[in-house]
Design a binder for these strands. Structure first.
Length: 276
DNA sequence: CGCTCGGCCTGTGCGC
DNA sequence: TGCGCACAGGCCGAGC
């Protein structure tokens, strides 16, 4: 599931198409296009050049001439840069299953959007600012300071697990990095945000940034579906401490990792070093 | 405000 | 071996 480090990795890979031109687009599953009719979407992107590829939270932000395309990957979305269509007839050189949108580029390459579960969305906006303004701060931004985060936590009284997954509170964390950050900070996912001491809030701030930076350095976490902008796996799955490790020993204290449902989501933690 | 639930999806993996 | 079904979860809207 693409979270901040995965989307950041895809954005960096796709920076190579900056300056390229979208010759034409095709949409095979119209429902992945948000807000617009798929035919209008195809019509509007045709001929526009790619000015810039960036990221905000879990959104991939592709700035075109007149519009901005936002890509949200949902659970299993992928955006891969593929080579030329082969003379033999196969449309895309990389894996072609679950292909929902295809962008032919002037350079000869193709940008393919694939999504097994179809939870992802592509949108095209004249001004993405109102959508992106609904997101909380960027965790890796220098403006996101420990002091500011402590104030944010004190102002709410939700469980840490719920709050950290809320994109309007903080942008970019999903289930994997939330569990990892709470483990790193030695804080229970059940803890209410306003009960944290100043020292605990600073620890959580530090932990969030550390697990995200580690995720980016490892080019993302590939559990099953995630691939980067060129179809490759990430390696952060080898660095996880609790996520997906139910019953296995906590790397810090040896107690078995627990999986519980918190706020409707599978949550992994060590009850011994993350006491309530 | 906070919380839960249902819907959207399909591959995986379990029980029988 | 195969069938059927619960489960996985990001996000949104509804309802309490």
């Amino acid at each position: 599931m693409p979270e901040l480090p995965e989307v950041e990795t895809i954005a960096r890979d796709l920076r190579s198409i900056e300056g390229d031109i979208i010759l034409r687009a095709r949409v095979c599953w119209p429902r992945i296009i948000a807000w617009l009719d798929a035919r209008d979407f195809v019509e509007i992107v045709r001929g526009q050049s790619v000015r810039r590829v960036g990221r905000r939270g879990k959104y991939l932000v592709i700035s075109l001439d007149e519009h901005t395309m936002l890509v949200h990957f949902g659970m299993t979305g992928r955006l891969c840069l593929c080579g030329l269509p082969s003379p033999a007839g196969s449309a895309v050189r990389c894996e072609v299953k679950h292909l929902h949108a295809l962008f032919a580029l002037a350079s000869g390459g193709c940008l393919a959007y694939q999504d097994v579960r179809k939870f992802g969305r592509l949108s095209l906006l004249k001004d993405p600012a109102p959508v992106l303004a609904r997101l909380g701060p960027e965790p890796l931004d220098p403006l996101f300071t420990p002091e500011r985060f402590a104030d944010m936590l004190a102002a709410r009284r939700r469980r840490l697990k719920d709050l950290l997954l809320d994109q309007s509170f903080l942008a970019g964390l999903g289930n994997i990095y939330t569990d990892e950050a709470l483990w790193t900070a030695r804080l229970s996912p059940h803890r209410r945000s306003h009960t944290l001491s100043r020292e605990e809030a600073i620890r959580l701030h530090e932990a969030i940034r550390a697990v995200l930076a580690q995720g980016v350095a490892a080019r993302g976490t590939t559990f099953s579906d995630y691939r980067d902008g060129l179809g490759r796996r990430g390696t952060n799955q080898y660095s996880l401490n609790v996520y997906g490790r139910k019953g296995r020993p906590c790397p810090r204290c040896g107690a078995p990792v627990v999986r519980a449902v918190v706020g409707g989501r599978g949550t992994h933690y060590c009850p011994s070093c993350q006491p309530v």
